[in-house]
Design a protein around this nucleic acid. Structure first.
Lengths: 239, 239
DNA sequence: TGTACATCAGTGAACGCGCGTTCACTGATGTAC
DNA sequence: TGTACATCAGTGAACGCGCGTTCACTGATGTAC
């Protein structure tokens, strides 16, 4: 936003920050979170260790930045898919969104693991994480608003309804993505139920694929996704 | 098996090994895989560091043992649930198995993460891991043998059928758990499809719950599972 | 346009830490005759 | 039952390593007048 007002120094600074994150991601890619080491990043960039502290307060600060970026990137990918499929029916929109989610995760598994993998011990997520995570899931809400879930899902819809009543943050999030459900408690709860179910299914399929559990089966991450989103669409009577 | 033939020395050795694993699990529980440190385990047991090398060749060896145990424990839990529900219909059996899977995972999240979490970087799984993982999933095969999956799942059934033809290991695994499908390629593929779908769904639900993503929603791990297994049962026309 | 000053990037030395692992050893426990 | 020997648990010292982070500093770049 204020970028154009920044002098060359600030621009150079931003660039170096980007380079640091780039190297950090490469380390993450071939060594996991444990392999993220400031000293090694510095060396890779031809800098001395302490120089990095000009750009990030400490290791956790860098980790935070990477996580924020990952969420934002994922949200963008999902958002674009949602925009593309806006005119389609809910059933196909679900498939497109699921495909976009998987595509992003599979193309950069280490970033997916960063935001959805095992909780990093000792790491405390910053406050805005929740908001960013919601930006990723938001488009899924729109798929299910007009769905009518079956008997097995009834209990979950009730729970989600209660949650909406209790937590104004969630309520306004739902309202933001599905404004046509404003005031309709039932529709909001249904949308939320569908989104959480979709999230759970996606995490299962993508998490297993990323962990390499499907190797040898014949590449079926996409096939699995089609089967799953079909099931979910059926369960909500989507067209 | 040969336990009764072992002298007191061997028995004592087994006991110390167990104590080491116990402390290791405690470390895992409150610090993740990165917190597993031989020297700290030794200190906790009142031993010097090098003493541990009498019991485990190195850190990876200990990790292997923990992973093996976790798989075996999970397999036992699922196996017992399967035995309990043997007389029930497939729909309810699925729910019971899913509940048992979740119960085990939630009661010891660190062990679940050990076998299903992010791949540990640099760690190479031993050969018998596959076999143990199959022991966990085996009972799920029996649920779906006589199911008739819908259109969206057709492609996946085909893939699984091809996999069964290609990989004799999988084929014999399926044959072991669902002997009544012997020679019936279609039924075997259907059973395998259902099991993989169930696995994926369970991993999603349990993985998110274990990562703490559901906190604040009101405890709905079980509700989610009921919704999911209901959907899956519907998709396969289970009774 | 030139000068004085402030800001900022980056350095090198140093800190304390905990880690996995090896080695040569001591002393207790079990085994063979 | 007693003795000689082999086996095994455990120790303490030591290794090299890479880590995050602090500190006092140098030199270049930007800014104000």
């Amino acid at each position: 936003m204020a970028e154009t007002q920044q002098g060359p120094r600030a621009r150079y600074r931003e660039q170096t920050r980007a380079e640091i994150k780039e190297v950090a991601l490469r380390q993450l890619a071939d060594g996991g979170v444990g392999a993220l080491a400031l000293t090694r990043i510095a060396k890779a960039l031809g800098l001395s260790g302490p120089a990095l502290y000009r750009y990030f307060a400490n290791r956790d600060d860098l980790l935070n930045a990477l996580i924020r970026d990952a969420y934002d990137d994922a949200a963008t990918a999902i958002g674009e898919a949602a925009a593309t499929a806006r005119a389609r029916g809910p059933r196909e929109r679900l498939r497109v969104l699921a495909g976009a989610y998987r595509a992003w995760a599979v193309s950069e598994p280490h970033r997916y693991l960063l935001i959805q993998g095992s909780p990093v011990p000792g790491y405390v997520a910053p406050d805005d994480t929740l908001e960013r995570a919601r930006a990723v899931l938001g488009p899924f809400l729109t798929v299910f608003v007009h769905g009518s879930p079956g008997a097995d899902t009834a209990a979950m819809v009730d729970r989600m309804g209660a949650w909406l009543k209790r937590d104004t943050g969630v309520a306004s999030w739902v309202a933001e993505y599905v404004p046509d459900a404003a005031g309709d408690d039932r529709a909001s709860a249904v949308a939320l139920t569908g989104a959480v179910l979709a999230w759970s299914q996606l995490h299962g399929a993508v998490g297993l694929e990323v962990a390499g559990q499907f190797t040898g089966m014949g590449h079926d991450g996409e096939t699995l996704l089609v089967a799953q989103s079909g099931m979910l669409a059926d369960a909500f009577g989507l067209e």
